[in-house]
Amino acid sequence: MTQSAVSAGSGAAPEAPPLLEVRDLKTWFKTEDGLYRAVDGVSFAVRRGRTLAVVGESGCGKSVTSLSIMRLVPEPPGIRAGGQILLDGEDLLEKSQVEMQDIRGQRVSMIFQEPMTSLNPVYRVGEQIVEGLVKHRGMSAAEARAKAIEMLGLVRIPSPESRVDSFPHEMSGGMRQRVMIAMALACDPALLIADEPTTALDVTIQAQILGLMREIQARLGTAIILITHDLGVVAEMADDVVVMYAGKVVERAGVRALFDDPQHPYTLGLIDSIPRLEEKRDRLSTIEGSVPHPQRLPEGCRFSPRCPLATDRCRNEEPPLRQLRDGHEVACWYAPIDEAAA
C-alpha cells in the first residue's frame, strides 16, 4: 500500500488517484465583526467508490468545507483565502460560476439535512428530478421522466409511477430524503456530498436511508463525503474519517484505526462522550468548556483550552498534522499520549 502525503485512505488500490483532493483549503468570512476563519487549512482526499466522513461539532467548519467544494459559499462575505480543490486534477476554486453549474449536479451532487427546505414545494418531485436530466444530459421530457421513475424506484419509493407526480408535502420525511438522493444521483455524479443526511430523521428511518446509501454506492461506485456529528453514523458508513475542530483537521485515519486507536485528545473525548447502549456506567464523560468563538480562537493548538493534557507548548505553538503511521495523521504535540505520558 502506498500513501501519498495527503491521502486519507487505507486499503485502496495503489494505482487509483483520488477522485477529489482538497489541499490546504481556507474559506474565511469577512463580516462587520471581523474575520472568521471558518475553514483554515483543511486537506483530505476521497477515492472512487469510497466514503469519507467529516466529523465534528457545530462550528467546526465541516459544512463550510462541503459548501466550498460545491462553490456555494456566497462571496462576499466568503473569501477563498487559499488552497486547492482538485476534482480529477481540475481545481474547482478556479472555475467560474457558469462552469460550476455544469459540474454541480452532473459530477458533484449534494444532499442536505432538511429535505423539506431543499425541495421546491410548488413543483412535483418528478419535475425536480427531470430538470437536471434535461439540462445536464440533454434528454427529452419523456426520456427524463422515465429516468426519474427509474431513480425513484432505485431509492425504493413504493409505486414510483404515481409518486413521480406527488408534491413534497405529500411525502414523509424519509421519503423526501429518498427523493433528494434520487435527484442527486440522477445524472450519475462521481461524488456525492451528504451533509447530515439523516440528522432530521427518526432512527428507524435513518437506518433505512443509511442502508440505501450503502447499497447505491456499491451499485454505482459513487464516492461519498459524509458530513456528520454522529460517530455512530461514521462507524457504520465511513471508510476513512477526518475529525475537524475549530476549522482545522485534528485527526485523519481509516475508520477502524480511528475507533480502535484514536490519537487526538479531542477524538478521544468525542468517542468517550457518546452514551452507549451496551455499557453500565452511570455518568457520561464530557469535554469541559465549549468550542471557541471563531473570532477568539486561542493561540497555539485550538483545542488547548479544553484539553486536560495541554502544556505551555500547546498554548503557544500550533501543532502540525503529522503522520504517525500509514494513513493515520494527527495534529497533537503529544500523540500518542499514553506513550508520551509513560
Partner: peptide
C-alpha cells in the same frame, strides 16, 4: 437495533 453504534 436501529441506533447506529460507534463500532465499525
Amino acid at each position: 437495533a436501529a441506533i447506529p453504534r460507534p463500532e465499525p
